[in-house]
Design a protein around this nucleic acid. Structure first.
Lengths: 224, 224
DNA sequence: CGAGAACGGAACTGGACAGTCCAGTTCTGG
DNA sequence: CCAGAACTGGACTGTCCAGTTCCGTTCTCG
């Protein structure tokens, strides 16, 4: 018997297990690719530098990812799918206080997106939207589209429960999304990371946005 | 006497004059640079192709613009400054009907930005925001910042004239801007030119945005 | 109409990069 | 402990590109 006790788990259920060499390298290459692509863009990035930064040989990088293009697409889709996921857009937990819930959701959305890493990803995808249209679409679906669908679902639930007046929930969901995200997101796109608002600014911005939305649908204003 | 200054006219007033050879070439190079940079991005663009497309030699291109970087910056700043200019953001012509004016302005803003050419420019600037931060700032100042300042001025005038209730005009101007521009602009950034809304869709979107804004500040709704 | 500036064409330098290949080394699973 | 798979390091190919240089031609302006 080996001293290693290989019987720990023959199944694939071992998530945070020690991780084989191959998986470790795979992850290291993705890490390195993230740094290089987010810094230099797709064309400006060098596969030599990715390999160097990953502590791997170019040969290994190509064995794992096939080509620069495949590595790029794999990286961006992974980051895209991992971003909006933990935001609970799929729930329908309509509480009795729409204003409070909407404000909390707004802050959560801002926190998820207003990160240097995610902003650089977004700049990268927008800049390469000509070359990789499918990446733009993926980011749109996982970002704004999903958020608006989730908000629309919540608004419908509140209307049904009598907590909000009847109104065009689809339009309101869109208005909410851009009242919240429009200004900070576009400022950060063009002005760089130093335009990222502080947590206090985010809370104030979210509160103003929710107040405007509630006013626009004829709902009673946010209670303090 | 210096041999320099071959200026055709002593004054600079000759605008649509026949245009000397040098000016013609200068413009042709800028045209070619626009095509190539907007299509391939900064790094992907080739100066050889710019010269070929301009019908000029590389030597001439470099005589006129010095370097790839200078040509890029000159092109982008020229396009940036030329875009928002004819929108009348500097006027304060507050009529008696804020709703109608705001809706008309919204359509004008959408028409100015939702052009394949301007959208590609915006994608380019965002994608190169790391390499050329000053271009991002310039686009921000000439675009959203100027628009919001103009709207704020109009809102103040209406409040002063009693056509709108008292409210935080700066916040409302920001809300207006992103109610109008947020959805279509970000969709076009990520989804490409086929996501550009039709004129009818723009009018409907503008009307809904203005209705939401008026509601949010407690003003009477838009009259048909 | 003539002189000089500006231009075209084309070759050239120096450097970078994607992707491949190979010989030798290290890890892993049985 | 061993066989085979995976990895390293570096050289190598073919291509592309920014920027320069040279020479002969064309245009412009006085």
């Amino acid at each position: 018997m080996s001293t290693v006790d290989p019987a720990s788990a023959p199944d694939a259920a071992t998530a945070s297990a020690p991780l084989g060499r191959s998986e470790r390298i795979h992850a290291a290459v993705l890490d390195a690719a993230e740094q290089v692509f987010l810094r230099d863009g797709y064309v400006g990035a060098s596969m030599d530098e990715v390999a160097r930064l990953a502590g791997a040989s170019k040969q290994t990088v190509y064995k794992h990812f096939g080509s620069k293009e495949q590595l790029f697409v794999e990286l961006v889709t992974a980051m895209t799918e991992a971003t909006g996921d933990p935001l609970g857009h799929e729930t329908t937990d309509a509480s009795a206080d729409p204003g409070r819930d909407l404000a909390a959701l707004a802050v959560a959305m801002l926190d998820a997106v207003l990160t240097p890493r995610i902003l650089r990803l977004r700049r990268l995808v927008i800049g390469e939207a000509n070359r990789f249209p499918e990446l733009g679409r993926a980011l749109y679906e996982h970002g704004p589209a999903r958020a608006m669908a989730g908000v629309e679902r919540r608004l419908s639930a509140w209307v049904e429960a009598g907590a909000l007046p009847e109104h065009d929930v689809r339009t309101s969901a869109q208005h909410y999304n851009w009242l919240v995200m429009g200004a900070p997101l576009n400022a950060a796109m063009l002005l760089g990371d130093e335009a990222i608002p502080s947590p206090a600014e985010r809370r104030a911005h979210a509160k103003a946005a929710v107040a405007a939305l509630l006013g626009s649908i004829g709902a009673p204003p946010l209670v303090e």
